[in-house]
Write a protein that binds this DNA or RNA. Structure first.
Length: 130
DNA sequence: AGCGTGACGAGTA
DNA sequence: ATACTCGCCACGC
């Protein structure tokens, strides 16, 4: 069976290409829930959704992250998003996100997020989930 | 269909 | 702290 038609008349593939994929919407929703001053890793978001993996979440953020607080979804090692370090840093300083200053041995290095303190598990709302 | 690539992550050396 | 390996999975060529 090919050439299946969607209710709107277009081919399903076309609809999927233009509408924000539901998965992407779910990812952005979670990003919106992260409190200021806290972060969630790509993997955490995927786990929380019980769907996809870190790389899928990363893909979504890369494509549609601009519409969400993208700086609150970070790598597990706390490294700032390459190419957006200054913007991210500005947000972290403004929100009071826990940072680990670069050691003087590594001079030119930017601070990294202190994941132990900044990581947010979904805390308050974890109850309603599972 | 195979293969490289990526806003990833964990493990090992 | 750095480097490299694997596992992961959606995409594009």
């Amino acid at each position: 069976m090919s050439e299946q038609r969607s209710p709107e008349g277009g081919r399903y593939e076309d609809d999927l290409a233009q509408a924000l994929p539901e998965y992407a919407e779910r990812v952005l929703d979670v990003a919106e829930l992260i409190p200021a001053g806290r972060v969630m890793t790509y993997g955490d978001v995927a786990e929380w959704l019980e769907q996809g993996g870190p790389r899928q979440v990363g893909r979504v953020m890369a494509l549609y992250g601009g519409a969400a607080p993208w700086w609150r979804v970070v790598r597990a090692d706390g490294v700032l998003l390459p190419g957006h370090e200054q913007r991210a840093l500005g947000h972290y300083r403004a929100e009071g996100t826990p940072l680990k200053e670069a050691s003087r041995a590594a001079e030119g290095h930017l601070p990294r997020i202190d994941m132990r303190r900044a990581r947010w598990d979904g805390g308050d709302r974890a109850e309603g989930h599972t």
